[in-house]
Design a protein around this nucleic acid. Structure first.
Lengths: 355, 355
DNA sequence: CTGAAAGCGCTTACAG
DNA sequence: CTGAAAGCGCTTACAG
């Protein structure tokens, strides 16, 4: 038998603040309809064990009938934390980042977490500007998907986040030196693999084009490249190293300049697929044949690479796996586990016609 | 003379809910330090006119000293509305959308609005799934940047949003039939311009590759194409119309198939730069010369198009301008103005080597 | 297992 | 111009 109690109201409601908004049902409305207290409604909604199956059904029925959805902001205020995580992304317009964003969004969604997007556009000022706000918004955490190395200026900000109980995770860049758990692709071994592949095709003058200084990821790739060229015999030539931005134009310009200077090379290892595509354009402009005259390997395994002329050999990227690792960290943290300091995702050689 | 009052506390504070979080200063702390009431602090923070310059300075000083930042969720709860807008985006991995996202994020930021990102991945189910949540989150509004037409199933959801005072705006797609203010690029005239350009170069057999059915944008482009071919003389040939998805692979496959079938054409108008790039790949694979044998024009003006081989002629896109229009709508709505039903952004021909 | 009560941190009529 | 008070819609010790 279901006991029927008098409706319980804990508070008189204010006149609507928002004149245009239709009145939305609250826990109190649900409680009233179900003949229980708002506390019980809350317990049911939050899956607390200590509720009778009978009561639970009563509440759930009322929730359904009223089309009730809890007010996220009230929950957040009360719990002292929101349910959203900010993604700070180096440059959302680069495929690598937009792809990562896609997977992170869907992965967080599966954990019931909302994603606040903040695009940095390669600006550390913007990063520094955002970080304190993360605290005032009582975010659950912050995911850093940066393109550039961060200066020490952000360190205290990061500490501030942690002191306030925000989760901070880096994706795509190793920020362990700031005590931030990081999910990265292995870069050095990948570049090593790529260059060895060029070597296996009798290429002997292999250039490197891509950002090195100021980019830990770029530095790692360059090291892998250098190691591969240094090992059996010394094929490394500093004149064939072009430290330029991760951009189409930089790739094209660097290669065009080298060609103009009369430098000889029969292979190019690029730091990204965009750079590789720029390189392809420069070679094309000069009437050179890829891969006959020059073989090219990119980094990132972008879909686009399958449609360049010729299609682009590249080291794969796995934003889906990275996002999955992020989710695992989140789950772990919810259970009170300390996250792994470093998680590494392997890249693979995607063989296509350019090499 | 500044009157010094006894500190005014409106409420005892609870023991911290969040054990790890350092206690964050509240309006009450600020009020105490400034010797005013929390109401006055709030007034200063919200820029209400009715505050003495003297008092204002006092409060601002206290804010600075304490490093106070208002709790966004408390504000939102009280005001009945958050300060965030959701961007529902067709597919963040497509450059067109990621670029739009970039500009919308920075534009909203300038208005002090946060961006919640929700990627649809072309799924209407996901759209239908999200919309009710927008209400429970008390979002300020929702920006729809969709790729596909929406079915009537979303109509009641959209109404639900509006009934609850949420702003709904469409970007990149005309949703006026659902009474949604829309910011769009003009498509038909743009396609017309592009095809006329091909015509001006003595191309006579011009194909169209790209999504038509199910995409209002695609339909518009196709109409422009058709009109340009129909007008002076009738050059329109249904066999040269390939209604395929907005994807690299679709572009390549459609062109490869046509070539294999022995169809003749000397120009291709593509519905997007990705499709155009796919087409380029198919022509390259067949050993055809672009633009000598076949000229190609894309849509979108992507940076990438400058680095294809040869570089891609395209109709430009202006996400920055679209975002600026969005901001204007926001500002207007804040002032109580009704937004323009339709805002149109012009495209321009970007001449490059492929045509 | 469930209610009554308190309070999260703001803002805004209501007075004066 | 400014304070005292109430309340936004939840959740969680505290009792029983």
């Amino acid at each position: 038998m279901v006991r029927v109690r008098a409706p319980i109201l804990h508070r008189r409601r204010l006149a609507r603040q928002d004149p245009q908004g239709a009145p939305k049902p609250t826990v109190i409305d649900v409680a009233q309809k179900a003949g229980v207290s708002s506390a019980t409604v809350s317990r049911v909604l939050n899956g607390k064990a200590s509720v009778t199956a009978e009561t639970r059904e009563l509440v759930l029925g009322a929730v359904r009938k009223l089309g009730f959805h809890p007010n996220t902001m009230a929950q957040g205020l009360r719990k002292g934390q929101s349910n959203t995580i900010a993604l700070l992304v180096g440059d959302i317009e680069q495929t690598h980042f937009s792809s990562l964003t896609n997977h992170i969004q869907s992965t967080l969604e599966q954990s019931g977490v909302d994603l606040l997007l903040y695009n940095l556009g390669h600006s550390e000022d913007r990063l520094i500007n955002f970080l304190p706000r993360a605290v005032t918004m009582r975010l659950k955490g912050v995911v850093l998907a940066l393109s550039d190395d961060v200066s020490k200026a952000v360190l205290p900000l990061l500490d501030h986040l942690r002191e306030n109980g925000l989760l901070v995770v880096a994706v795509g860049q190793n920020l362990n030196r700031y005590k931030i758990p990081s999910i990265v692709h292995e870069e050095r071994a990948a570049a090593h693999t790529a260059v060895r592949y060029l070597l296996s095709q009798e290429r002997r003058k292999i250039a490197y084009v891509g950002r090195i200084k100021g980019s830990s990821v770029g530095t790692e790739r360059f090291r892998g490249y250098k190691a591969a060229l240094s090992q059996p015999s010394d094929l490394f030539d500093p004149n064939l190293v072009w430290d330029v931005a991760f951009r189409y134009a930089a790739g094209r310009d660097a290669v065009a300049r080298a060609l103009q200077q009369g430098l000889h090379f029969d292979g190019i290892q690029a730091g990204s697929d965009e750079l590789a595509m720029g390189a392809l354009a420069a070679l094309y402009d000069r009437g050179l044949n890829v891969p006959k005259d020059v073989a090219v390997i990119g980094f990132g395994g972008l879909e686009m690479g399958a449609y360049t002329c010729p299609s682009l050999t590249s080291m794969s990227s796995h934003p889906d796996i990275a996002a999955e690792h992020l989710r695992a960290i989140l789950r772990g943290v919810d259970r009170g586990e300390a996250p792994l300091a470093l998680t590494t995702v392997q890249r693979k050689l995607i063989r296509r016609q350019s090499a």
